[in-house]
Design a protein around this nucleic acid. Structure first.
Lengths: 155, 155
DNA sequence: TTGATTAAAATTGTATACAATTTGATTGCA
DNA sequence: TGCAATCAAATTGTATACAATTTTAATCAA
């Protein structure tokens, strides 16, 4: 591949990631709207359903988001009644996020979303599951790399 | 995989795409800043270096972006002196985007960016090229799917 | 020819993202 | 103890994204 080829849009892995990510997020919209969730608040809820009582920092480490994004997002989730935000009595710097009863119940109402989303992408077509697993593994390898490089860059 | 597993963050392909896309875009920042480009204006320039004189709509179809994103972006690229925006005399609804001399020259100054970016992700580590090619092909298959479903959804 | 329809950009409003800074709390050390 | 360094959230400012609407131009049909 010569110098010129590298600048072609079709050879940009990041562009392909960026487009696929955005287009799939668009497809979530009609599924999430009835639950009063955006994509970002949905992944926050996914994380909290696995483990709540975490700090904003811990949630941010899981979601690869910072407080500038999470603070307003979590305030909205609190207004929606899905979570509560409480300062940690032991260390008042930490804000801990807890699911409310309504937030816990939302999990059951969300169970169909992953399969409905796959339908909206593949609508009935054949989808090679092994290819999806390979894709996921490749992306998870990349994600691990981002985690480790965050630390190493601040020598 | 039972019902519960589907809601786990680790099984969300979209989340992995979303994180990888964002983290790579962050790594572009220091490479693009000296050229006075953001990631979005960079991909716009990549597209224009392959073909300019296109309309905003055509550029948007290539980049999967709409006029709401492109209009302000292109105005900034015009202010930077990289492009010019001219109404099509044949059809005044169309706005055509042309590279200026400065915009064409920027291509040479950008040639090192793709390899520098790979370095910033893999810094010296082994990177399996065949895995990257597989990743790209999987994502391109997905992108084709988004293109065709855009039309089919508006029966 | 003209009014309805369609089409392309631009605009408006809302929701992210994130760098950089600020605020407030804690820790560690002199 | 007391104060500098550190840490977690929050805030500020800028740049996207995109749905929905508006504006302006072109086309089509009666």
């Amino acid at each position: 591949m010569n110098k010129n080829e590298y600048l072609k849009l079709d050879n940009q892995i990041c562009f392909a990631l960026y487009v696929c990510s955005k287009e799939i997020i668009k497809k979530y919209r009609p599924l999430l709207e009835p639950l009063n969730l955006t994509y970002t608040s949905y992944i926050a809820m996914l994380s909290l359903w696995e483990k709540d009582g975490v700090t904003v920092k811990e949630l941010g480490d899981t979601l690869f988001l910072d407080s500038g994004t999470l603070t307003p997002l979590l305030k909205k989730l609190e207004i929606s009644g899905y979570i509560s935000r409480k300062r940690d009595a032991k260390d008042e710097r930490n804000l801990r996020i807890f699911l409310t009863k309504k937030g816990q119940e939302l999990k059951e109402r969300s169970e169909k979303i992953p399969s409905n989303l796959l339908c909206s992408i593949y609508n009935g077509d054949y989808c090679d599951n092994s290819e999806m697993i390979k894709l996921r593994d490749t992306l998870h390898n990349l994600m691990r790399r981002f985690l480790s490089s965050e630390g190493s860059s601040k020598t």
